[in-house]
């Protein structure tokens, strides 16, 4: 397996200033290709979870995991198997919608994708959508003809299914 693929890596890290910087810096310094990174608190207040999507062949991904493990503030690293995880991304999309036809079309598409309209102005609609990245890409594709004014995507966050957990004993 030497093809470049996207992989999802989940890391539990110390929840303190500077950790994101040292992780991001490691990726930059070693020339790893990071597609997205998301960080947030966990069920333990002194820990944070980082979810990273990284592109590379098998050997590169192994190096990424080892180099992450080497950082002192990174406590646990795991590679999530795409077949057994729930991976989600959230996107906010501002779409041009001047006339009623455009508006109802956007709203219909949003319904199909189980997205929600969260803001309305005279010229545009803002849609909130969650799902895996493919779903968001597909929705964005449909919105293109209307005119996409702005997009904000969170990057992927993920957990593995079932009872198993990437968690730290207290």
């Amino acid at each position: 397996m030497t093809e470049e693929q996207s992989h999802i890596i989940s890391a539990i890290v110390e929840h303190k200033p500077g950790v994101l910087y040292s992780v991001a810096n490691m990726f930059r310094r070693r020339g790893f290709n990071i597609e997205s990174i998301s960080v947030g608190p966990t069920e333990q207040s002194d820990l944070a979870r980082m979810t990273m999507t990284v592109k590379g062949d098998e050997r590169t991904i192994e190096q990424v995991i080892k180099q992450l493990n080497k950082l002192i503030d990174v406590i646990k690293v795991s590679r999530l198997n795409p077949a057994s995880i729930v991976a989600r991304e959230l996107a906010l999309i501002k779409v041009h919608a001047l006339d009623t036809k455009a508006r109802s079309d956007v709203i219909n598409y949003a319904d199909i994708f189980r997205a929600r309209v969260v803001d309305v102005s005279s010229e545009s609609l803002m849609v909130e959508i969650t799902g895996d990245s493919d779903k968001i890409d597909a929705f964005l594709g449909l919105m293109k003809p209307f005119g996409v004014k702005e997009v904000a995507r969170t990057g992927i966050t993920a957990l593995s299914r079932g009872a198993k957990s990437v968690k730290i004993e207290e």
């Binding site: 050997r59 192994e62 190096q63 080892k66 180099q67 493990n69 080497k70």
Partner: peptide, 11 residues
């Protein structure tokens, strides 16, 4: 002693 050195430069 450093896992990250395994396979980094030479397989």
């Amino acid at each position: 002693i450093d896992t990250a050195e395994i396979g980094k430069n030479v397989e």
